[in-house]
């Protein structure tokens, strides 16, 4: 198995996906490529005061 495929398989198995067929492994490779492309659009220069949209509010429980 080529090194990059072996590395992908290790990465997938570390994620707990140990029951994939060859066809599903090929899907996982595409999935990884899709994820890599997606995260390129996430800004990495946000100001530390930029809080996430889901910041927990304890007052909601009152």
């Amino acid at each position: 198995m080529p090194d990059d495929q072996a590395e992908l398989k290790r990465e997938i198995e570390r994620a707990g996906l140990t029951h994939l067929t060859d066809q599903q492994l090929a899907q996982a490779a595409k999935a990884k490529a899709a994820a890599v492309q997606l995260v390129q659009r996430i800004p990495r220069d946000l100001h530390m005061y930029d809080e996430p949209a889901h910041t927990f509010r304890a007052s909601e429980e009152v």
Binding site: I12, A15, L17, Q24, Q27, K32, A34, A35, L38, V39
Partner: peptide
């Protein structure tokens, strides 16, 4: 399966 799997690679 194909559409959900990319979530496995997001940190």
């Amino acid at each position: 399966r194909e559409r959900i799997m990319p979530g496995a690679f997001l940190r």
